[in-house]
Nucleic acid binder design. Structure first.
Length: 612
RNA sequence: GGGACGGUGGUGUAGCCUGGUUUAACACAUCUGCCUGUCACGCAGAAGAUCACGGGUUCAAAUCCCGUCCGUCCCGCCA
């Protein structure tokens, strides 16, 4: 017989995380999931779980034989309503695991007097262990995503999303107090020529035409500045149809923020204070401000990337001076052709690279990655090293190396020679690999190193299209002192743009915008948009600029990455309730999916798949 | 689009290099029985896998080779 219930007639009086000795003797009702059962024959223990915690329920055959018999039915993940008396556990049977500052349920148990099964659960659960101890037994991500509602029952996932909620709430509280106004901007907008691929939405009313989903609310927030809102923010969803990574999803959330009548210093200060407040409120951690600043050029030179992980040193050093008079043909040629010799000195590297064969293996691996110019010096004394290029290094160079590095036995120096950008990029990646291999980044210890990267170049050269591309976006203003370079050497012109970097992740990007029409027109021209094209695409912005646009600028921190780092997770999927897999599918819903012919007809669309 | 790694009962892994002594092993989950103080309960037992798919090599393929599909990570891409 199927019993249809609209729900139990009784309501829970407490959560599974709040009872303690203070409630001793009370009759309570708990409702939740059967987390685990321990059947000892005459006595049956049920761990009842809800989002707040776990409380032990006891069925005793001597006290309530009928109830004890009926309770045999209870199995994992059954949803039940339990009525019973809060009872103190004897000292030996108290569970210390559930006696903490926040939780006291290990002190007590519920002697069940009545229960109701609100819903049973199939015995073949695709995720067999939902407890914390079972984390190593978790199924692969495919399973977890397909049965996401089960995966989300796990404490870790709930905590991650709770942390996310708190962070977003604290951000809203802070910005509200600072006088920011949250404004919603449209999701159905117009496709833009620049940037990432757009997600398109066909229009039924205007057949053959399409909306695009926003890649960011960029233009709207600038227009809100023109409208005089002065301080705007939004927790905004953004969509970009590009390939995924562990820190990139096709739809993601940004704290979008913009201010008028300010300089970048005002942006820095408000963001620094915001993150200081977030860390204090959410993790009770002190965050010193101001954050360190690096120019883009410095960051590339010292760390080989524009998002350096500052939790450890291992800076890249320039070794050109050591080899300026070398007889080694390879290095002569490199230095003679505007090349560079850079390197990283790893103290006590021999504790990881215990033999030359391990170092040779590393060289092999990097050769496969396309970095042939990597070599090493393994120091076997304060003045002696073993190296594949050992016989090419003369006494003069050796002296300079010793003077520069002051090495000790066991140190390893890694050198990469060649074209500047490529070799620095390689060393930047090597730096991360070395730090991981010698454990310079302690995982348990939550360290958060924020830094600003400033003075980005205005443009990069796009070799395929033979034109300048904006490094940030086309509404970014140049540094005032570099405006003159726009005409002369645009590639040397620096932008008034900045990134915020946290532990090696870019977590925010922003700029002071252009607010004057002639300059905006000039930038469009430089990136290869004719005035006519610019008007077609961005006429509304150029129009707006002629009606009194205030100077303005902003920034957009990525919420998913921020929460991921604060949660100590290694993928943003761990902090998104319903994420997509790497091929951008929702495995739970089975999206994307074909649509019925009549739906396409209404939109005047025809699917034309290439045959293969 | 490219590269690396992986796909073995419901779930996670071992076995694969070096083909046959494996009736495909282990843990978790499931089912049955026993058990009154467990808390990742314990004990005894049972059921459950054409080893992702297709082809090839071989007397013999989970194991070697080729192709396809799927997953994760990375490169490209992400103003």
């Amino acid at each position: 017989m199927i019993v249809i219930r609209s729900g139990s007639t009784v309501r829970k009086t407490h959560s599974c995380g709040e009872l303690s000795l203070e409630n001793k003797g009370e009759i309570v009702v708990l409702q939740g999931w059967v987390h685990r059962r321990r059947d000892l024959g005459g006595v049956l223990f049920i761990d009842l779980r809800d989002r707040e915690g776990i409380t032990q329920i006891v069925f005793n055959s001597q006290i309530y034989p009928e109830l004890h018999k009926k309770a045999q039915e209870l199995s994992r993940e059954y949803v039940v309503s339990i009525k019973g008396k809060v009872s103190e556990r004897s000292d030996e049977t108290k569970n210390q695991k559930f006696i903490t500052d926040q939780i006291k349920t290990g002190e007590i148990e519920i002697i069940c007097e009545e229960f109701e099964i609100l819903n049973p659960c199939s015995s073949n659960l695709p995720i067999s262990r939902l407890d914390e101890e079972g984390e190593k037994l978790l199924p692969g991500e495919e399973m977890r995503l397909k049965y996401r509602y089960l995966d989300l029952r796990r404490k870790k996932m709930f905590e991650n999303l709770k942390l996310r909620h708190k962070i977003v709430k604290v951000i809203r509280d802070f910005l509200d107090r600072e006088g920011f106004l949250e404004v919603e901007t449209p999701m159905l907008i117009r496709t833009t020529p620049e940037g990432a691929r757009d997600y398109l939405v066909p229009s039924r009313i205007h057949r053959g035409k399409f909306y695009a989903l926003p890649q960011s609310p960029q233009l709207f927030k600038q227009l809100l500045m023109v409208a005089g809102f002065e301080k705007y923010f939004q927790i905004a969803r953004c969509m970009r149809d590009e390939d995924l990574r562990s820190d990139r999803q096709p739809e993601f959330t940004q704290l979008d923020l913009e201010m008028s009548f300010i300089t970048r210093e005002d942006i820095f200060l408000v963001i620094e204070r915001l993150f200081q407040y977030v860390l204090k409120t959410v993790l009770n951690q002190e965050l010193p401000i101001p954050f360190p600043r690096l120019t883009y050029a410095e960051s590339i030179q010292k760390y080989g990337t524009d998002k350096p992980d500052l939790r450890f040193g291992l800076q890249i050093q320039d070794f050109a001076d050591c080899f300026s008079k070398t007889n080694f043909k390879v290095y002569q040629d490199v230095l003679g052709s505007k090349g560079v010799i850079n390197g990283i000195h790893l103290k006590d590297g021999a504790k990881e690279f215990t033999s030359r064969s391990k170092l040779d293996l590393l060289l092999e691996q990097w050769k496969l990655k396309g970095v042939k110019e990597l070599t090493y010096l393994l120091w076997v004394g304060q003045k002696e090293f073993r190296s594949p290029i050992g016989k090419h290094v003369g006494d003069g160079e050796k002296e300079k190396l010793v003077e520069k590095l002051n090495p000790e036995t066991g140190d390893v120096t890694f050198l990469v020679s060649g074209e500047k950008d490529r070799s620095l990029e390689a060393l930047g990646k090597l730096r991360i690999e070395l730090a991981e291999r010698v454990s310079l980044i302690p995982k348990e210890e939550r360290k958060f190193h924020f830094s600003w990267i400033v003075d980005f170049p205005m443009f990069f050269w796009n070799e395929e299209e033979k034109r300048l591309d904006p490094a940030h976006h086309p509404f970014t203003s140049p540094l005032p002192e570099d405006i003159a370079l726009l005409d002369l050497k645009p590639l040397e012109c620096r932008a008034n743009a900045y990134d915020l970097v946290l532990n090696g992740y870019e977590i925010a990007s922003g700029s002071i915008r252009i607010h004057q029409r002639p300059l905006q027109e000039k930038i469009f021209e430089l990136i290869g948009l004719t005035l006519k094209q610019a008007y077609e695409k961005f006429g509304f912005l150029l129009d707006a600029f002629q009606y009194g646009a205030p100077p303005h600028g902003g920034i957009a921190p990525g919420i998913d990455r921020l929460v991921m780092i604060l949660a100590g997770a290694d993928s943003i999927r761990e902090v998104i309730a319903f994420p997509k897999n790497q091929s951008a599918q929702d495995l739970m819903l089975g999206a994307p999916v074909e649509v019925p012919e009549n739906q396409l007809e209404e939109l005047a669309l025809k699917v034309n798949l290439p045959s293969r």
